[in-house]
Design a binder for these strands. Sequence first.
DNA 1: CCAAATGTGAAACTGAGTGTCACTGTAGCC
DNA 2: GGCTACAGTGACACTCAGTTTCACATTTGG
Lengths: 197, 197
Amino acid sequence: MNGPARTSTRDIARAAVQAELAQVAFELFRRDGFDQVTISDVAAAAGVSRSTFLRYFGSKEEAVLLAVDGQGEQVAGALRARPAGEDDWTALRRALDPLIEHYRAEPAGALALTRLILETPALRSRLLEKQAGWGPALARTLTERAGLPQPPALRSLVRAAAAVNCLTIAVDRWTGSGGRLDLADLLDEAFAAFTTR
Amino acid sequence: MNGPARTSTRDIARAAVQAELAQVAFELFRRDGFDQVTISDVAAAAGVSRSTFLRYFGSKEEAVLLAVDGQGEQVAGALRARPAGEDDWTALRRALDPLIEHYRAEPAGALALTRLILETPALRSRLLEKQAGWGPALARTLTERAGLPQPPALRSLVRAAAAVNCLTIAVDRWTGSGGRLDLADLLDEAFAAFTTR
DNA sequence: CCAAATGTGAAACTGAGTGTCACTGTAGCC
DNA sequence: GGCTACAGTGACACTCAGTTTCACATTTGG
C-alpha cells in the first residue's frame, strides 16, 4: 500500500555498493575480457559473496550497463524541456546534447566503456535491448509535446527510433576513431542524413 | 585449403533435420512458452539427443530465428537489383517488398512467429542483434550502388538503419493488429515519416 | 531494549552451452 | 564385396549463470 518509497539512507548505501561493484567488475572485464571473468571472480575481487553480487545485479551484463541506465530517461527529460514549437527532428537532436556532453567531459572513461561494450557481443546485445526501449519512450514524449493523443503515430515512432539510431551510429564511429572525432559533429552529420537530399 | 564447399547431399540432409527440429521446437514454444521449454524437451519431442539439438543450433533461440536468417541477405540482394538511378530511400523501401510478400503469402504462420518472438524477451533481443547487422550490410550495398568507395558514409549507415527500423516498427504494429492491417501500407507510412513535413 | 525488517553468505538446484569419447552407419576406394 | 575413413549421434562430465532457500547478523524504528 506504500508509495514508491522515497530515497532513504539505505538506498544511498545500496547505490554506493552497486557503484563499487560495477567499478571492480569493469576493471576486471577490461583487463581479462568480459567472457573470461566469472561472477565469482568479481565478487572475490570486491570482497563479497557471489550471492551478494547477484543481489545487486540481475546479470553480469547489468554491472556494466548500469552506467547506461537512466540515459533513456535523461534524453526523454531533455526532449520534454525543448520549446513547444520546435520541429520534432531538431528537438530530438538537441535532446541528445546532455548525453554527449558526458562523452566530452570524460572521453577516456567513455571510450573505455564503449569499447568494452562494442567489442563484447553479450554487452552489445543488452545495450541494443535497452536502447530499443528508448525509441517508444521518446515517441510518447514527442506525441505529448505536440498535444496529440497517445499512443504515438507511426511517424513519431519512426523518427524517435531513427534519432536513437543516429546516436548509436555516431558513437560507434566516434569509438572507432579512438575518440578523436567530435561526437557532436558526427551526430549532426547523422541527423543530416534525412534533411539533405 | 578447400574452398567454401559446394552444396552436397550431406548439407541437404542437414538442412532438413534442422528444419524438422525447428518445427518441433516452434510448436512446443508456442504451446508452453519459450522459457518453459528446455532443450532436452525439444530434443525428446524430436526423438534426438540434447547433444544433437545443440549441434544443429548454437542456442535455443537459434531454433526459432533460423526462419529469420537469410532475410538480411535477401533484402541486400533486392536492393542490389534496384535501378541504378533510383533514390536511396525509395530503393530501400522497394527492397523490402520481397520480404513482406512472405507475410502476405502466409499471414497465419508469420503472425504466430512474430508473436512468439515479440513476446519473448530473449528472442526479441536476438532478433535485434541480427537486424543490427542488416543496417551496415545494406549501407555497403547502397554505397556500392552509388559507385562510392567503401566504407559507407554516415549518411548511408543512418538511412539503411532507419529502413530496417521502419520494417521493425511496421511489423510490430502489424502484429499488434492481429495481422489485420496491411503491412505494405504500414511500411509506406513508416517510410513517409521523413519525406512528409 | 526489543522486534521486525533488511543485508549477507552458504548451499543446493536447474538449465544453457562446451568438450570429449566411443559407437555406428555410410561413402568412397581398392 | 570388403575395408577404411569419416560424419553424425548419444552419453557423459564439466563450467558457469541465475534462482531459491535458509540461517545468521546488523540495523532501524518503536
